[in-house]
Amino acid sequence: MKENGMFDKTAPSRTDVRTEKRTFGRRRGRFKRNAGLFGLSLPGVLYLLVFAYVPMFGIVIAFKNYRYDKGILGSEWIGLKNFEFLFASDNAWRITRNTVLYNLSFIVIGTAVGLALAILMSRLGRHWVKVHQTVLFLPYFVSWVVAGYIALAFLDNSAGFLNRALESVGLPGRNWYFEKAPWPYVLVVAHEWKSIGFGTLIYFAGIMGINQDYYEAARIDGATGFQMARKITIPLLMPLVTIMLILSVGNMFRGDFGLHYFVPNDSSFAIPTTDIIDTYVFRALRELGDFGMSSAAGFYQSTVGFVLVLLANYAVRKFNEDNALF
């Protein structure tokens, strides 16, 4: 990997950093060296301090019986009580399994399809790229509530297009909303439908950043399009793919509420195969509306995601340090 090699040469050697003594003067020297870049990062750092880190103290709500009149600190500390409802019934296993499996399939399918489409798209003329990119992105603007209506138009038992089509070729229609089996497929299709423009765009932008010379050289050697994709494009996109993967791993315990709630039309029959942590929390707390308990669910999702990311990042570091996230 030429590019990475290039970085290695210019990166400060690790021993430099390690031997740096923790003395004030040295440290000031280090800061001086980095002052310019630190300055560039400062607006973002401050922004996150104010908008992300300061409100983060609210995590304590997850451990409290939060009362509005007593305030966040004044409310009674109740330990892990708010977390119990997540594990109270035999739903715990089901929602965890569903959340993880859906995320895994979204990650695998989304990455594969996104990469494939981006590579194919890079072989089109600019005019067509514009047209297809725009079309692929259209569904991004359709909210899940509306996507739920559309799904109903296709899958409705009596009036849906799918059943009408089946009947017209002599096959019996099925009441899709009364079954649990079809929903994993429907949700994956719906998810890809809505997000594929997004994934394709990211990887397409990655391809745009690849040096043309590589392709020229390969073409002179008589490489086919497929070979070039396999030997040049995909390896050079790996850093980007890795980042996207690690970012997805962090959200492994989180799901898209709208997709899992509105697309199956909140059908009771679909719950066994569509219920994820986020929809369970919604259904369980619809009556109570308890912020302590919903914060607890969020904290649980974050913590698991955090551990997974640390593991993933560690693994990537072992393998190739430059692709690691931090």
Binding site: F85, N91, Y280, R283, L288
Partner: peptide, 18 residues
């Protein structure tokens, strides 16, 4: 009984209507 109330709500949401 918040834990139980929440869990029971989720169960009713799944079974009652069918």
């Amino acid at each position: 009984l918040k834990t139980e109330v929440a869990a029971v709500s989720a169960v009713r949401a799944e079974y009652a209507i069918p």
